[in-house]
Design a protein around this nucleic acid. Structure first.
Length: 465
RNA sequence: UCCGGUGUAGCCAAAUUGGUAAGGCACCUCCCUGUUAAGGAGACCACCGUAGGUUCGAAUCCUACCACCGGAGCCA
């Protein structure tokens, strides 16, 4: 490239010293000395750090442009990269030419060169990626996504695109968003009910809450597959770890049992963390320093030792034996409350833990019934600070058992005819799980609110951007 | 959806508990030839979330509503 446009990430490397190059980005801050020159810090998103530009008073547009350069302005600067004379950065650029691409009114531009609360930044979701924290979150999220693909591809998995729109209104979990083209102000009625036969698909349709069922169809043909896409839940959830729209990674493997499943989940989580620590060092240092001190050591510890495995029964025993006072009492058969899960992962284990073999009553119909007749081959991976990051199970491959469990759960097997076909024809043991990407980003960065780890969060009552 | 909390200038934030709205940052002006959310000086900036009510007087008390935060449920 004739103008030698380089990223700020490259310009900050010591081996860039001596080159004449161009950088393009946004002004983060400006400090000037009235006597002669200004320091301008520019960020272009390529890395956490800024490049310090030394703009000398001899620049032809120094008075007209540089001295009034505001935070948020976009600039194209050509100059020589030199070793920095000051503390705090290895290199800096001596500007030969500085061009202002777009100004940002100092009185109107919301972001200032100081810290804003995350709550306030949510109101400026379109501008918050220009801040240190959200830039770092975006790069971490990108890296975790990339690591997901490289992990599964290396493991011989096939990336499958399961549908976003689904017609089965009871995929298992949660309230669904309805998808319709019917006129809401003039709904076609039949016998006092909406005539859904007239809807776009000839029946009711919804946004998916999981790609699992379709994933199973492909796993029982192609062996090992994974999905990675958006997922929708219309629950009226208002917490720091729930979104109405989030991204989920769902591997599904034929000929895998629960142990294989748990082993894969552990290797996947460790792969992501190792990849993140070795590729996003500067961003991770920021999270360690400003968001959650101790983060790096605790993540490193996760890499170093095997995950703790506890059966549901063992977990209940541990909870009952503990001195901890719980708001909800624990007994075998009850669903574990957040306080219970937190105790197990944060106090008892102090790291990731895999809970498995839950009572069948508190889990989904498709989870494989164990020989004891009381538990199913389910597993949850819990991590400190976030809670459940993975939920999965071995699926029941036995047509009769699965059908019985559907009926027990109040479901009509006829609605799942194609899902049952997978058991009718060449059935195999298989297993899979779902990982919430946002929760993984939370865990990796220490960010406490899930709305701050997705670019434009969708939550009840919030769809501004 | 339930429980608790908060809502004061562009941003952060105080008001002795009913008495007539601190301070900081930013913006603007001035000073300082290498700074590291720069430093120093000055000026400017508020119908105190919205709507009612009590009172001589309300940011402070009451009612309703809205928004946000924390916790819970649902789950990823």
């Amino acid at each position: 490239m004739k103008n030698n446009w380089i990223s700020i990430q490259r310009a900050r490397q010591a081996d860039a010293i001596g080159t004449v190059a161009q950088i393009r980005g946004w002004v983060r801050t400006r400090r000037d000395s009235k006597g002669g020159f200004s320091f301008i810090e520019v960020n272009d998103g390529s890395c956490f750090g800024n490049l310090q530009i030394v703009a000398d008073g001899t620049l032809p547009n120094y008075q007209s442009d540089v001295t009034s350069l505001t935070v948020g302005s976009s600039v194209v600067i050509t100059g020589e990269i030199k070793a920095s004379a000051g503390q705090g950065q290895a290199t800096e650029m001596f500007a030969h030419e500085l061009q202002v691409t777009g100004t940002a009114s100092a009185t109107e531009y919301p972001l200032q060169k100081k810290q804003h609360t995350f709550e306030k930044l949510r109101e400026w979701a379109h501008l918050r990626p220009r801040t240190n924290t959200f830039g770092a979150v975006a790069r971490v999220r990108n890296r975790l996504s990339y690591a997901t693909h490289s992990f599964y591809q290396q493991e011989g998995f096939l990336y499958v695109h399961t549908p976003v729109i689904t017609a089965s209104d009871c995929e298992g979990a949660g309230q669904m968003f309805r998808v319709t083209t019917l006129p809401l102000d003039k709904l076609p009625m039949v016998a006092g009910k909406v005539d859904t036969a007239q809807d776009f698909f000839g029946k009711s349709s919804y946004l998916t809450v999981s790609g699992q069922l379709e994933g199973e169809a492909y796993a029982t043909a192609l062996g090992k597959i994974y999905t990675f896409g958006p997922t929708f839940r219309a629950e009226n959830s208002n917490t720091s770890r729930h979104l109405s729209e989030f991204w989920m990674i769902e591997p599904e493997m034929a000929f895998f049992d629960l142990n294989d499943n748990m082993d894969l989940a552990e290797r996947y989580l460790k792969y992501m963390l190792r990849d993140l620590l070795s590729h996003c060092g500067e961003d991770m240092d920021f999270f360690e320093k400003r968001i959650q001190p101790g983060l790096l050591a605790s993540l490193q510890l996760v890499l170093d030792k095997p995950f703790t495995h506890l059966s549901y029964t063992e977990a209940v025993a541990i909870l009952q034996a503990s001195e901890e006072k719980f708001e909800y009492p624990v007994s075998w058969g009850v669903d574990l409350q957040a306080e219970h899960e937190r105790y197990i992962t944060e106090k008892h284990v102090q790291g990731p833990v895999i809970l498995y073999n839950y009572p069948k009553e508190i889990k989904s119909f498709y989870m494989r019934l164990n020989d004891d007749g009381k538990t199913v081959a389910a597993m949850d991976v819990l991590v400190p600070g976030v809670g459940e990051i993975i939920g999965g199970s071995q699926r029941d491959e036995r047509l009769d058992v699965l059908t019985d469990r559907m009926v027990e759960s109040g479901l009509n097997p006829d609605d799942y005819w194609w899902y049952l076909d997978l058991r009718r024809y060449g059935t195999v043991p298989h297993a899979g799980f779902g990982l919430g990407l946002e929760r993984m980003v939370q865990y990796s960065t220490g960010m406490t609110n899930i709305r701050d780890v997705i670019p434009f969060p969708r939550t009840p009552g919030n769809c501004e951007f």
